[in-house]
Computed example of a mutant assay.
Amino acid sequence: MIGYRLSEESAEDRWEVEALYDTCFAPGREALSSYRLRDGVDRVAGLCLLARDGEGILAAAIRYWPVRVGGHAALLLGPVAVHPTRQGEGLGAWLVTESLERSHGLGWARVMLVGDAPYYARFGFRKLAGVVMPPPTNPERVLGTGDWAGIAGDVEKWDSAP
C-alpha cells in the first residue's frame, strides 16, 4: 500500500500493538474465549504483521496463533485491528491478504477465525461446520479457509496433546 510500510511484529512492538487493540476493541476483550487459546502460547513468528505510515506511526496490526482442531494443526487469525483514523483505507484487507499468503509459504494448511462472514468471505473464509470454539462463541462466526476436509472437533490450545 502506498504510504505504508509492512513489517513483522517484534517483542519491542508489543505494548504499542496492545494499545492499538485497546483502542479498537471493547473493554474486556481479553475475556473472550479466543484469548484462552492464546494464553501461554507464542504467536506465530512471520505472520504477526504491522502497517506503519511514513512517520512510523502504527496504523494496523494482525496476529496469528497456533491451535489444534480435532488433533490437527491450524492457525487462529486474530486479532486484526486498524486504528479508527485509518479505517477505510484497505489496511485490514492488506494485512489479511499478505499474512494468508505468508502462512501458505510457512506450510500452514488451514486458518480459522471468529468474525463476520460477509467481511471475511472475500478472503476465502467460510463457516466451519463441526469446528467448535470454546463457549460462549457463536458457531455462525467460526470461519475457516484452507484444507478443512474431514477436520472437526473442539478447538484446543496448541500445547494440548494431539
Rank of each mutant, 00 (worst) to 15 (best):
G105I: 05
A59R: 14
A81M: 05
G105W: 05
A59Y: 00
T145V: 15
W148D: 10
S34P: 03
G46I: 09
G56C: 11
S103C: 10
R141H: 05
A152H: 01
R122E: 07
V142P: 12
R29S: 07
L58I: 06
V131C: 07
A93H: 08
D53P: 12
V155S: 10
F125G: 05
S33N: 06
Y64M: 12
M133T: 00
V41N: 03
Q87S: 11
R38M: 15
P136E: 08
R52C: 12
I62S: 07
W148K: 13
D154A: 15
L106N: 04
H83W: 05
L58G: 10
L76I: 11
A109Q: 14
R110V: 13
R63H: 05
G56V: 08
L50C: 01
E140M: 03
P135D: 15
S160T: 14
L37D: 04
I151S: 00
P134A: 01
Y35R: 06
P136G: 15
V111Q: 07
D147V: 12
L49A: 10
R141D: 10
P66M: 09
R110S: 14
I151D: 00
A60Y: 04
A93F: 00
A60C: 02
M112W: 02
R36Q: 14
P84C: 04
G115P: 12
A152C: 02
G88R: 01
V131I: 13
A45R: 04
C48W: 03
G56Q: 09
S99H: 00
L106F: 04
D147F: 02
G88H: 01
N138D: 15
R68T: 14
E156G: 09
G90W: 06
E156N: 11
K127I: 14
G78L: 03
H83R: 15
S103H: 11
R43C: 08
